[in-house]
Design a binder for these strands. Structure first.
Length: 272
DNA sequence: ATGCCCTATGATATAGGA
């Protein structure tokens, strides 16, 4: 099973590239972020035409997440348990579903803007709600493969940005944000590290200043997987080619291949 | 080369991104 996550920075602006990429990469499950459209405006029909079921959570101009699946799309959950509001609004930033026996969450973690900003506190509260929501699912079904995938808007380590000195005083690299990710990992989730097809394993490069070809990237699109998921991973890579050329998103897809059948074999009687 | 910001919106400026 091939599972991918991609912040598309507007699904309508990216539609041609998204459809072409689905045909090229042949993912079974895709988590999308930054749809920038309401549910009614999501291009459901052309995606369905490629064999995918679609679940979306979008309200309009900002945010928005979706799950596409051609291996079943069940138990859809919209939003987090105890999800905080921002300026009185419930923002569309998380959608969960069970796809072919694998529990998947597509998340678009708040940016935070700058340390001390209301949005920064909101980001930390949001990550705490994510931990509560996923923690309950892991407790209820500990042997089911599960992964949180999406744009976490946090670089887990200094090696996940091209130059840490540039980020002094900025969001994405602060200790509280990294602690929030550590708290997620405390649930038993592992950071599945994708290989880079070229250069460093970054997933985002700013549109400005030729960041892509200068190597000014960040690894902020992550795959946080429980043991049943992580143990089934056979490959993981960043599809940097999708960041190239005209009409690209500023994020590249992260692709994970799973051998779910092998993982499902009971441990009892196994060779190791 | 991959090449120097992009997207949606009560739009001809602005907010947000990270």
């Amino acid at each position: 099973m091939r599972i991918a996550t991609w912040n598309v920075n507007s699904v309508t602006a990216r539609l041609d590239r998204l459809l072409a990429w689905l045909e090229l990469a042949q993912p079974d499950v895709v988590a999308l972020q930054e749809l920038k459209c309401a549910d009614a405006a999501f291009p459901t029909m052309p995606v369905q035409a490629l064999g995918y079921e679609v679940a979306t959570l979008g309200t309009g101009r900002w945010n928005g997440v979706a799950l596409l699946s051609r291996v079943g799309l069940d138990e859809v959950t919209h939003g987090l348990t105890g999800q905080p509001q921002y300026e009185g609004a419930d923002e569309p930033r998380a959608i969960g579903a069970t796809c072919g026996g694998v529990r998947v969450w597509s998340v678009y973690v708040p940016n935070g803007r700058e340390p001390g900003h209301d949005h920064y506190g909101y980001k930390l509260e949001w990550l705490a709600a994510l931990r509560v929501t996923v923690g309950a699912e892991l407790t209820a079904e500990p042997s089911r493969p599960l992964a949180i995938i999406g744009d976490f808007n946090v670089a887990p380590t200094d090696d996940d940005v091209w130059d840490i000195s540039v980020f002094e005083g900025s969001t994405h690299v602060t200790e509280p944000e990294r602690q929030a990710l550590a708290d997620l990992r405390e649930l038993g989730l592992a950071d599945v590290l994708p290989r880079a097809l070229k250069g460093n394993p970054y997933t985002f490069w700013d549109y400005r200043n030729g960041a892509l070809h200068r190597g000014w990237g960040m690894r902020i699109d992550l795959v946080y997987a429980n043991p049943a998921f992580a143990g089934a991973v056979t490959d993981a890579y960043i599809d940097r080619d999708e960041r190239k050329g005209k009409g690209a998103s500023d994020h590249a897809p992260v692709v994970v291949d799973l051998d779910v059948a092998a993982q499902a074999i009971p441990a009892a009687g196994a060779e190791r």
